[in-house]
């Protein structure tokens, strides 16, 4: 029987820690996520999910340890090229229309054929009629959808998503799940932090945190996760 070829590592943390004074937001965490994995990151409020994702994106500096994305230090220029981060709070320019946002982000990432892709994403999320509107006038859900388009229109190897379902209507949730599937089917690694159980059935692995500590790393199933979130 031929030996299985190990998949390349998409995300790796070694003793990654974040502390604010005496408060430990994330205790030393060692974790390896292989390319193409679909990981659901669960935990109660304040468990360290967002802290971990923001450190992977390079937005937060670790207090200790290290993190790598696609073999490069998190936050480095190559890691930024590889990782797309969809935050839980959509942050958009007040003075750029939705279309201008998409063009700017796509060009910033040197994206090929971004016009077709953005047209598809905008249509899939029901934003076509709002293309020329300023996001300052959008509701929370529309801002979330805009943020979703921006994180998906650019090239990425690793998609890191924080509480993506908040504020989305049912059609938006369905579209989001399909788009996450598309990304994973294309070979990307997808990490979704969520309280909702909607993504669990699609995930291949579940990582759970509580009070900054890793409490579970294994298969994702509804019963286990419901117990972890209780």
């Amino acid at each position: 029987m031929p030996e299985a070829v190990p998949r390349p590592v998409a995300v790796e943390t070694r003793e990654l820690t974040k502390a604010y004074g005496e408060l430990v937001a994330l205790a030393p965490l060692t974790l390896t996520i292989a390319a193409g994995e679909r990981v659901v990151l669960v935990g109660t409020n304040g468990s360290g999910k967002t802290t971990l994702l923001r450190m992977l994106a390079g937005l937060l500096e670790p207090s200790g340890g290290e993190a790598e994305v696609a073999g490069d230090p998190a936050g480095s220029i190559d890691a930024r090229a590889a990782l797309s981060y969809l935050p839980d709070d959509p942050v958009l320019y007040d003075d750029l229309s939705l279309a201008e946002h998409v063009e700017f982000v796509a060009r910033l990432h040197d994206t090929d054929a971004w016009e077709d892709r953005s047209a598809y994403l905008v249509d899939r999320l029901g934003l076509t009629a709002r293309l020329d509107d300023l996001p300052a006038r959008f509701s929370r859900g529309l801002r979330q959808k805009t943020s979703l388009v921006l994180s998906l229109v650019r090239p990425f190897e690793v998609l890191v998503v924080d509480e993506p379902f908040v504020g989305l209507d049912q059609s938006g949730r369905t579209a989001l799940l399909e788009l996450l599937d598309d990304a994973a089917d294309s070979g990307a690694t997808v990490v979704v932090a969520t309280h909702q159980l909607e993504y669990v059935d699609r995930a291949t692995r579940c990582v759970a945190l509580r009070d900054g500590e890793l409490t579970h790393d294994g298969p994702a199933d509804q019963a286990t996760i419901a117990k972890l979130l209780a």
Binding site: P8, A35, A70, I77, D78, R80, A81, A82, E103, F104, R107, L108, H109, D110, T111, D116, R117, Y120, L121, L152, V153, R154, P155, F156, E157, L159, L179, D182, A183, A184, D185, S186, G187, A188
Partner: peptide
């Protein structure tokens, strides 16, 4: 249509600096 997931071989490196600078100017 699939999302814009890129394989390491296709998009492993950073884009040319000129592209980013031009996007910033725009």
């Amino acid at each position: 249509m699939p999302a814009a997931a890129a394989t390491p071989d296709e998009d492993g490196g950073a884009p040319a600096e000129g592209q980013g600078v031009e996007a910033l100017r725009a």
